[in-house]
Every structure is written in C-alpha cells, then in structure tokens.
Amino acid sequence: MGEDIEKTEKMTAALKKAGIRVTRQRIALLAVLADADDHPDAEELHQRAKVLEPSVSLATVYRTLSVLEHEGVVHRHAFEGGGARFETTHEAHHDHILDVDTGEVVEFQSDKIEQLQEEIARELGYEVVHHRLELYCRKKTKKL
C-alpha cells in the first residue's frame, strides 16, 4: 500500500512538472497505474479507471500516459504482436517473458543474464547503458 502511494506521488509530481492539471480523472488513472501488477494497455487502464471515476475518457488516458512516459515515470512496452503496454518505472530493473499463447507477461530478474550481458559488452569494448530483454515463449507440455 505504501509503495502505491509513493508511485502515485511520483506520477502526480511528474504531471505538475509538465504543467498538467491533476484532475479527478487523472487521479483515478494514477491510482490504477500504481496498483497494476500486470502490464495493461491504454484501454485496460481506461476501463479500470472508469470504475473509480466514470467520467474518465480514453483521450485523457492517452494524453496522461504520454506525459508520464515523457517525464520518465512510466515505461511503454511495445511487445510483438500487440499494442503498447504500460508499467511504472518504480520497479527495479527486470526483463520479460511473453507467453505467445496467452499473451501473459511475466517479469523476471536474473543476475546470471545481467552478468553475461556486461561481460559480452566489455569483451567487445562496450559499456551497457541500457538494455531490454523480452523472451517470447510457449509453456512446455508434459509428455505422457
């Protein structure tokens, strides 16, 4: 609960910094974003925010997400085979597995992968400044 409040405050500050009014509709959207433990698209966020504030428009959702992304407090993910999905930047770095059958997005973190990426970049004369790893997977079926 405290983490959600911190996320909401960070997003509210970003909107104010960008000169955007923090309306009831935007407060509802921020609450939904802060509470999301998945990677919803704009339409899913719109539907969730309407439960809290029925007057929220899809246009407000898109405009607000654009500002929050520009301010660096929301990540926009453009996973293959689907529209943009969103998550707050408050979480520690992680990578994603996308289930190609269900569309489920699973977050994971692997020190081994992080170390290997650093090692490969270093061997090639580079320093990693940013990376994103997306694995498109299918659950294995048990053999009888």
Rank of each mutant, 00 (worst) to 15 (best):
Q109I: 10
H94A: 10
K17P: 01
L52R: 14
L116T: 13
V105E: 03
L58F: 14
A92Q: 09
H131R: 11
S57K: 07
K112D: 15
L33Y: 01
T23K: 08
E134K: 00
Q109W: 11
E123K: 15
L98A: 09
G72K: 02
Y136M: 11
A18Y: 01
L98K: 13
E114W: 07
I97G: 03
R122P: 06
H130G: 05
V51S: 13
L124D: 06
E91C: 03
E118T: 14
G81R: 02
E53G: 02
I113N: 06
E6V: 12
R21N: 12
K143H: 05
I5Y: 05
A14E: 04
L144I: 09
D37K: 15
H93M: 10
T12W: 00
V128W: 05
H70T: 12
Y126L: 14
D111Y: 10
K140T: 12
K16G: 02
D41H: 11
R63V: 00
A31I: 01
R24D: 09
L98M: 12
S55M: 12
K112W: 11
A18C: 04
L30A: 04
G83K: 06
P40G: 14
L15G: 07
L52S: 10
L116P: 01
E134W: 01
D95T: 09
S55N: 11
A13P: 03
S55R: 15
P40I: 13
H75S: 11
Q109N: 12
R138Y: 07
E127A: 08
K112V: 14
K17M: 02
K142S: 06
G125A: 08
V129Y: 00
S110C: 07
F108L: 04
G19Q: 05
H131K: 13
Q25A: 12
H90L: 03
K17V: 07
V73A: 10
A78D: 13
S66A: 06
E114S: 14
V32M: 12
A121E: 06
E9Q: 12
E6L: 11
G103L: 07
L98Y: 06
K50C: 14
T60M: 13
D37Q: 13
R63Y: 10
R63C: 05
V22T: 14
K50N: 05
K16P: 01
E127K: 11
Y126I: 07
E53I: 04
